[in-house]
């Protein structure tokens, strides 16, 4: 594995290969909770936290599975760890802010089936990142996810007042905006390659 500077890993995960707009990971919450700015921000925070915990756990699990020579258990153990982390976050949020808990609704437990988190764990394993690198990668991925969610929430809030044909309203409009955002994120492609 070639050495990558940490800042490059962060920029790569958050901008160049943005999880939502370039890898299409985590589209469900992206379409679901991006209607309001406030929920979008907090959802981004929750996902980033789960990502950090899951990434650290995945690093440990991978080391363990390599030691006992059972790579076929990788997927199963990752998903179990993610599910329990989400359960933890859910209890935490419920206790701390019931209003937020209601606003996120079904999408909070659904973080378990958010592909961005499992994807992150799998990608960092494939890339052979170390502990610190994994941490930065998770941070970058979380930041990228939050950024994409906030951008689209801002756009959708404005579009509430726009008059659009009936058949375009809803998912179609969000997908079109996402496509345009994805196009503009391609502008970051040359970043960091020198």
């Amino acid at each position: 594995m070639k050495e990558e500077p940490l800042w490059y890993i962060f920029i790569n995960a958050s901008l160049i290969n943005n999880f939502v707009l370039a890898y299409f990971l985590g589209i469900c919450p992206f379409l679901g909770v991006s209607g309001k700015m406030e929920t979008a921000t907090k959802m981004g925070g929750a996902v980033t936290f789960v990502m950090l915990v899951a990434s650290m756990c995945a690093y440990g699990i991978h080391a363990l599975l390599v030691a006992i020579d059972a790579p076929f258990l990788q997927l199963i153990s990752y998903i179990v760890v993610i599910a329990s982390t989400v359960q933890l976050v859910e209890m935490f949020v419920k206790k701390l802010s019931p209003a937020l808990f209601r606003a996120l609704g079904i999408f909070l437990p659904l973080i378990t089936t958010n592909c961005a988190i499992l994807g992150l764990a799998l990608f960092q394993t494939n890339k052979g990142y170390g502990l610190l690198e994994s941490f930065v990668y998770a941070l970058g991925a979380g930041a990228g996810f939050t950024l994409a969610l906030i951008l689209i929430a801002g756009l959708r809030e404005q579009l509430e007042f726009a008059e659009v044909p009936k058949i375009v309203k809803g998912t179609v409009l969000t997908l079109l905006i996402a496509g345009i955002l994805s196009l503009s994120f391609m502008g970051f492609a040359g970043l960091g390659s020198q």
Partner: peptide
């Protein structure tokens, strides 16, 4: 080329959904 790139995925899916919506309306 844009259709192969990620953005194309969003646009194509949006167009298919548009078609289904139009049929429903």
């Amino acid at each position: 080329v844009v259709m192969i790139l990620p953005a194309g995925g969003f646009f194509t899916l949006a167009l298919w959904l548009l078609l289904f919506n139009a049929a429903k309306v």
